[in-house]
């Protein structure tokens, strides 16, 4: 796992679990590695992994069953919520960059439409 060291690492660990749920690499009810296993695997301070797991438990993503391990909660709605959350994040990043180029908010929808159209045309010609 590659980290962006300018952002808290525990947050990125939580995000990675959310992404795994969105991509269906991980399913509600599924078991996740123990804190120690994950710390060794991604080579991160065990205290940081502990923080990420605490965060996930508080956010209602996981629950720890004594003696059995940590599991993803059986809640399929939460995945839709994460998807939306990630989309919002990607969009704000995108908007920030586009606005920095000097485009006004009202120009953005047409920019996107044109881009999608171009992509589609290229796809139709079979060069995609």
């Amino acid at each position: 796992m590659e980290f962006d060291h300018s952002r808290p690492i525990y947050e990125q660990i939580v995000e990675e679990f959310k992404k795994k749920l969105i991509r269906k690499d991980l399913k509600p009810g599924g078991k996740i590695p123990s804190q120690r296993e994950l710390a060794q695997e991604i080579k991160v301070n065990p205290n940081t992994v502990q923080r990420a797991y605490r965060e996930m438990e508080q956010e209602g993503i996981t629950q720890t069953l004594r003696g059995k391990g940590t599991f993803i909660i059986e809640d399929h709605n939460m995945i839709r919520r994460f998807k939306r959350e990630m989309a919002e994040k990607a969009l704000s990043g995108f908007l920030e960059e586009i606005e920095a180029l000097g485009y006004g908010k009202e120009e953005i929808p047409s920019l996107i439409r044109e881009h999608l159209q171009d992509q589609k045309n290229r796809g139709d010609r079979g060069t995609e």
């Binding site: 962006d4 952002r7 808290p8 690492i9 923080r51």
Partner: peptide, 14 residues
């Protein structure tokens, strides 16, 4: 360190 990152948006190196 995690708090410093959150506050300053910088890696330790930076």
């Amino acid at each position: 360190v995690e708090q410093l990152r959150a506050e300053k948006n910088l890696s330790l190196v930076d």
